[in-house]
């Protein structure tokens, strides 16, 4: 049964991707990209990768269509018809494709338990992680302890992206016309404002739940951060950018983003201070397992803060451009 679900999902994915390539209406393409994200999230779900499904849903179906929509709002949705270099693209793509297809023929069969991938490094995680780190969610234990440095890299990537976006769009001089309200703020949007007010608290609560539930079930710093940011984004969509800016202004968000990375870095440095290697939490508390727990919670917190801050920062900067774009349109 699992196989049929997996094959249908993959075929749906393929159809969506081809349709995205084919359509010339950008708005449809962005919506289809959202659907593509959700489909891949459900595919990951069927593959048993719960954490990855959660993240892909939050990012693939949530944040990236949101950002693309705000870009579309400024750049317009028409796309020029003629794809140039189509032939060159087709040739190079088919060549790479054939190389890949020929490579797949000799790959170990999908899902076979004796594929080398499952025999060498992975078994230790599954067997020993309970003893050494003591949390059921093996993905979080690998993510936060065995390969903690990768996650530090991940946090720094997000921080870099946030800074990059800030350097590009954030510093255009704050000549923002204050008086323009968000389009949703007219009284006629009563329903949305009421539902918005009702929804924001549960979202925040759910975000905290995901943050601290990471050890026992799917969840963790990154997903919690995104959901936390979504709460604020929903609020700014419904009540306008400057309403949100009053609560958490841009320099605070910037500081939070930097703070998250610092938290992560200093937890690692604590490892050195406690006489062990970098990012080794076993020295943080009495015995090594509680030390690992403490360490994992701390760095998950760091990840959560940075991701939430960066997502908020990116959205605020984009919607500031949106407002600036609208002002220009009204003016021109």
């Amino acid at each position: 049964m699992e196989l049929i679900l997996d094959i249908t999902l993959l075929s749906l994915l393929l159809v969506t991707a081809v349709y995205i390539a084919w359509t010339r209406d950008l708005f449809a393409a962005v919506m289809l990209a959202g659907i593509y994200g959700l489909l891949s999230a459900s595919f990951f779900m069927s593959m048993g990768a719960v954490d990855v499904a959660f993240t892909e849903a939050a990012v693939g179906a949530g944040i990236s269509p949101l950002l693309m929509l705000s870009t579309l709002a400024i750049c317009g949705r028409a796309q020029r018809a003629n794809p140039q270099r189509a032939i060159l693209a087709l040739i190079s793509v088919t060549v790479v494709g054939l190389l890949l297809i020929s490579a797949t023929l000799e790959m170990p069969a999908f899902g076979s338990p004796d594929a080398p991938a499952h025999l060498h490094v992975a078994p230790r995680y599954l067997t020993d992680s309970m003893r050494e780190i003591g949390i059921p969610n093996v993905v979080t234990s690998v993510l936060a302890s065995y390969r903690a440095f990768d996650t530090l890299g991940e946090v720094v990537v997000i921080f870099t992206a946030g800074l990059g976006v800030l350097s590009l769009l954030g510093l255009q001089g704050e000549t923002l016309p204050r008086q323009v309200q968000s389009p949703m703020a007219e009284p006629s949007h009563l329903v949305l404002r009421v539902v918005g007010k009702v929804l924001v608290p549960p979202i925040m609560l759910f975000a905290l739940y995901v943050q601290f539930h990471g050890e026992y079930g799917p969840g963790g710093g990154f997903q919690a951060g995104v959901i936390f940011a979504v709460g604020f984004i929903l609020y700014s969509l419904v009540f306008g950018l400057d309403a949100v800016e009053r609560i958490v202004n841009r320099s605070l968000v910037q500081a939070l983003a930097a703070l998250g990375v610092l938290v992560y870095g200093t937890v690692g440095v604590l490892g050195i201070v406690s006489g062990r290697n970098y990012l080794d939490y076993s020295g943080l508390a009495g015995d090594s397992v509680t030390g690992q727990h403490l360490g994992i919670i701390a760095i998950e917190l760091g990840v959560g803060i940075t991701v939430a801050a960066v997502m908020m920062l990116v959205f605020f900067v984009f919607s500031a451009q949106l407002v600036r774009g609208r002002v220009v349109q009204h003016a021109s």
Binding site: T160, A161, L168
Partner: peptide, 28 residues
Amino acid sequence: SNPLPHVLILTAIVVGIATTALALALVL
């Protein structure tokens, strides 16, 4: 199932969204 690819892909998704955000800012 093998947890290691899941960890790798968590990081790769983050890298993906980071690149998309920066690219969209550039497009703007």
